[in-house]
């Protein structure tokens, strides 16, 4: 464990907790893409299957349970909570996210480290996580205004990805044979997707105006 990875995990934890708290306290999910949340639930469900078969550390297992629990409760809140589900912007959140699942599954069947059930699903979860934010970014572009909590959510997610890249660089130089091209490339693609959002987010902070994303 290194400081970059710990900071990355904490930032990731903060992003899901910020979102869960927002939805729980103001009983609204305006501006949040259910599709992205569903994709994240699938990402965690397919990545943390090893929670039953192998134990790495208390921290590792605890964080997996927290990520699984928070992502599924966000989806359940948005779909079934009597008040929250009414604030879900169904007409705007129209990204065909199921079209993302199949290519990621096919790619995982083609490119993986080991051809085992758990490993292919783990690789699938990496590819899916790389594109899971797309429905949320599209929704932000559509609704054009970013209420600051949703913006914070995406900002924290981007921060977690950036810290993970630093973590990989650190591990590459400190652990002799730490080479994981699949993780690195899908992680890089994911981080690049946030890049333009970061640009507009920083612009809005600099000019202290409401974040307007280009159409």
């Amino acid at each position: 464990m290194n400081i970059f990875r710990l900071a990355g995990d904490m930032t990731h934890l903060a992003s899901v907790l910020v979102l869960l708290l927002k939805i729980h306290t103001i009983k609204s999910c305006a501006g949040v893409s259910l599709k992205t949340q569903e994709l994240y639930a699938i990402v965690f469900a397919t990545r943390y299957l090893d929670i039953f078969t192998s134990f790495y550390s208390i921290y590792n297992t605890l964080m997996k349970l927290v990520f699984l629990g928070s992502s599924f409760s966000i989806v359940l809140y948005m779909k079934y909570h009597k008040t929250v589900h009414r604030s879900y912007d169904r007409e705007q959140d129209t990204f065909r996210h199921w079209f993302l699942v199949l290519p990621c599954l096919l790619l995982a069947l083609l490119i993986h480290e080991k051809f085992t059930f758990l490993e292919v699903l783990w690789t699938f979860s990496l590819y899916l996580e790389a594109v899971a934010i797309l429905p949320q970014l599209v929704l932000l572009q559509r609704t054009r205004n970013i209420d600051n909590l949703t913006g914070q959510y995406v900002f924290l997610l981007g921060g977690y990805r950036g810290l993970y890249i630093l973590n990989w660089i650190y591990r590459y130089f400190t652990e002799p044979h730490f080479v994981h091209w699949i993780t690195w490339i899908s992680g890089l693609v994911q981080t690049l997707l946030y890049a333009d959002f970061f640009f507009y987010y920083s612009q809005s902070w600099k000019n202290n105006k409401k974040l307007q994303l280009p159409a």
């Binding site: 990875r5 995990d9 990731h12 090893d50 192998s54 790495y56 590792n60 964080m63 997996k64 990520f67 480290e113 080991k114 085992t116 490993e119 783990w122 993970y164 973590n167 591990r171 652990e175 044979h177 730490f178 994981h180 993780t183």
Partner: peptide
């Protein structure tokens, strides 16, 4: 690193 194929990162 993947210790015995195990992924130690979240």
């Amino acid at each position: 690193g993947s210790i015995s194929g195990f992924h130690d990162e979240l």
